[in-house]
Amino acid sequence: MTEQRKDILDMLAAGKITAEEAEQLIAALERDQAPATASHDSRPKGKVKYLRVVVDATDNGEPSRVNVRVPLQLLRAGVRLAALVPPQALVKANASLSDSGVPIDLTQLKPEQLEALVEHLDEVTVEVDSPDATVRVFCE
């Protein structure tokens, strides 16, 4: 509860304003707060189409840059294609991942979970800043 809303309810409880006046004040308060809340998210709300990965780094004093743009449709298609991978291949991939120190069980990843992940990628922004490199992953 915001401070202003609490003040209004306190005035109502103290009998300084009527219930109708309190309702009008709260409505006015909500009207004022709505644009302020909306302005926090500056990203466009339209349908995003691409996943962008931008890496700016310095290797041996030379600047390097990786700029990748992948259509989200391609990710969705890739998820559908990955669903066709036979289980025996997934078991081998699990073993290789485990040997590499990445203990992920790919057989537990369901296509619908991956599709849900891709669907919600538009809300994801990853930014990594280090002295030598900057990595940004976002959708546009």
Binding site: K49, D59, N67, Q73, L74, L81, L84, P86
Partner: peptide, 28 residues
Amino acid sequence: RIGVVRALGSAWRVISALPGAHFDIEQG
């Protein structure tokens, strides 16, 4: 033992989704 039609359909989806892809790598 993978469904042929499903596999070819999925591969076609991947190919169809390629337009718009952009890979740009610079070093020095």
